[in-house]
Amino acid sequence: MTRVHDMGGRFGDGPVRPEAKDAPVFAEDWHGRALAVTLATGFLGQWNIDVSRHARERLSPKDYTRFSYYEKWISGLADLLVEKGVLTLDDLSGAGTEDPHPLAARVLKAGTVSGALAKGGPADRPSDVPIQFEVGQNVRTVKLAANRLVTGGHTRLPIYAAGANGRILRLHGTHVLPDSNAHGLGEAPEPLYAVAFAAFELWANPEHPNDEVVLDLWQSYLEPA
């Protein structure tokens, strides 16, 4: 059931290494290029943010672990371009044609970058799913952190918070459900809540009795407690 990107609570990763205040935004030039290529190809409109996250998460555990951050981005992107039929395996290996691409009309031009980035892509949508929980109510997350629609599919309930008791802190409105949207099954918007969990609900040896972790969780991840 476990997936490699779902690392919250994991042991063995060593210290966090803060950076100097004047550290560059992109430590290497290619980091900026990787980010920019990823954003620019996203504007071709062939996938959504949940699909692109899922592409990175599907890197083999071996690759996911050994790749640096932007290597994951660029490798997930290459896989996605082929999966969505934008590029072929021949294209990637250098044996592709240079014929004009049918999607070329959609290319993001320099002049439209600032407008496109400023526009954003909100995830809230109207929904017919009735709101089931109110602020302050006790809830429990489903026992298994897994996509119910697609075996091995994308989900945003981390394993460390599965089967845990929490309470509703706030309602964020109704939002696109990643478990559906990552797999071409529609946006399926439903209520999204911030849910607070006592640290002792999640960890065997919490640091402090009053500490909490808050997660944003969709209604279908929750049950009444």
């Binding site: 999204l192 911030a194 909490e212 969780l217």
Partner: peptide, 9 residues
Amino acid sequence: VRVWDSTAE
């Protein structure tokens, strides 16, 4: 300490 894990948008 309250840690916010950004699991949605």
